[in-house]
Amino acid sequence: MKSCLIVDDSKVIRMVAKKILHDLAFETVEAADGQQALDACKANMPDAVLLDWNMPVMSGIEYLRELRALPNGNLPVVVFCTTENDIEHIQEAIEAGANEYIMKPFDSEIIQAKFTQVGLL
């Protein structure tokens, strides 16, 4: 079973994402901000990360840069999932090492399509 770390400060979004990912046969771990996500990755590198942008303590983009600098930090497939849906943010994310980008609002179909595209499904 593949694992996915869900990083979002909204508990509701984490719940929705968790439900979708369980249906796609992923094991999930949750984090409410970038720092928690980084700690989770240091303990256990996931196969995938579904990542919000704006969060307290540490933002998604800061987390991503730190993640990619960790040993084995290039392994997880990182998919942003955020309301930041302008081209500048998307470009910044790609440059920081994001593999895919989902613009909210999302649904199970979009998650499935994106995860298929990056070879997670």
């Binding site: 849906n85 081209i87 998307i90 470009q91 790609i94 994001a98 895919e100 980008y101 989902i102 613009m103 999302f106 179909e109 979009i110 399509a113 994106k114 595209q117």
Partner: peptide, 15 residues
């Protein structure tokens, strides 16, 4: 639409 460009299109191609 935003929905359509997220179905099947790699984000690198979108950009």
């Amino acid at each position: 639409s935003q929905f359509e460009v997220q179905r099947g299109l790699p984000v690198q191609m979108l950009v």
